[in-house]
């Protein structure tokens, strides 16, 4: 088992390298380098800067080095010192800015993942066991709808509906009166009232996809001979379904962490922009628009790493769940 985990971690390294290359590529993509942007923004605000200082900074950041050297400086700064570079727009090191935002991105994604599981598991099982029933058709229809409505449109619609019919402001995580307030039950409730919309929005498409996958897998499993064996043993229908095929059809659920997580993080990004949540999304967009590239690149890198970790966790869980993977 440990051998398997170590092997998986080693297999991650090239992918990790690829992700860092892509992030670095994006940082380098806009014309001009970091200092020209800095100078431009400084002269916008009427500041001037000593040319000697500029030269010193060019040297520190290695802006005149070849790309490969620049890449190594950048990546070793991150790996060895946790130094993600400097955000000229905020005038602070990137590492000061990202962790809070990544934390909230991660927690909303995880909350959405829990939502996805909690909703799709019972509905998926029901749909597979009662195939072609009315409930199944309803679930399938909503599944299609859930897949078809892009996150941000759903977010806008829910925002509009709740604004129009409930008179509620749904942007952000708190109502104005609770921002910066102490934690009280009222504040928790307020947070919950704000949080359900993003979680539903982000989770909908993942839920729909998982229901479809679970239904298809479970339908396959239900026709396998071992199910008949379990029935022939005299197990009740509920136990037959829950103990055997569901156990095996759970595999896609666990491996879902691997591919649902990137979707969720994607979803959080755009939904957060629409709903103005304090996650990485709005900051990333702002950084990109103002070409604050170290900040933007760091976010993209960390989001990639996050999904990789998600995949690793899902692989390990899968191996725990299914002895066939563990032993080969």
């Amino acid at each position: 088992m440990w051998v398997y985990v170590v092997k998986r971690i080693f297999l991650m390294i090239p992918t990790l390298f690829g992700i860092s290359l892509i992030s670095f590529f994006i940082i380098q993509l806009p014309p001009g380098d970091y200092l020209t942007s800095l100078l431009a923004s400084m002269s916008d605000s009427g500041q001037t800067i000593d040319p000697a200082e500029i030269a010193r900074m060019r040297a520190t950041y290695g802006l005149d080095d070849p790309m490969v050297v620049q890449y190594f400086k950048w990546i070793s700064g991150i790996v060895l010192r946790g130094d993600f570079g400097y955000s000229f727009e905020w005038g602070r090191p990137v590492s000061d800015l990202i962790w809070d935002r990544m934390g909230s991105t991660l927690s909303i994604s995880l909350a959405a993942l829990v939502f996805v599981w909690a909703v799709s598991l019972p509905i998926g099982i029901y749909s597979a066991v009662h195939r072609h029933s009315v409930g199944d058709h309803v679930a399938t229809f909503f599944g299609f709808l859930g897949l078809a409505i892009p996150n941000f449109i759903l977010a806008l619609t829910l925002m509009y509906v709740s604004y129009k019919y409930f008179g509620q402001s749904v942007g952000g995580l708190f109502s104005p009166e609770y921002i910066g307030a102490d934690w009280t039950w009222g504040r928790v409730w307020d947070l919950f009232m704000h949080l359900w919309i993003p979680i539903v929005v982000i989770g909908t498409s993942g839920t729909a996809a998982l229901i479809r996958i679970l239904r298809a897998n479970l339908t396959d499993e239900l026709s396998k001979p071992y199910v008949v064996t379990a029935r022939a043993k005299g197990l009740s229908e509920f136990n037959v379904v829950m103990r055997y095929p569901v156990r095996i059809a759970l595999n896609p659920f666990v491996s879902a962490i691997g591919w649902v997580l990137p979707n969720l993080i994607s979803g959080v990004t755009i939904t957060a922009i629409v709903l103005n949540l304090p996650t990485a999304g709005p900051l990333l967009l702002r950084a990109l628009v103002s070409q604050d590239m170290y900040l933007a690149g760091s976010f993209i890198l960390l989001m990639g790493v996050l999904t990789l970790i998600g995949m690793l966790i899902s692989d390990v869980l899968l191996a725990l769940l299914d002895p066939r993977i563990r032993f080969t």
Binding site: P225, Y226, T229, L235, Y244, R247
Partner: peptide, 29 residues
């Protein structure tokens, strides 16, 4: 069809074995 009486018969009074010993047993138990 799936009531208590028939389930008592299945496995209890009548045992059943199949052609495919590979797929007739659960792979994860």
């Amino acid at each position: 069809p799936n009531g208590r009486e028939i389930r008592a018969v299945r496995g209890g009074r009548i045992g059943l074995i199949f052609q495919e010993p590979m797929s007739s047993l659960s792979p994860v138990h």
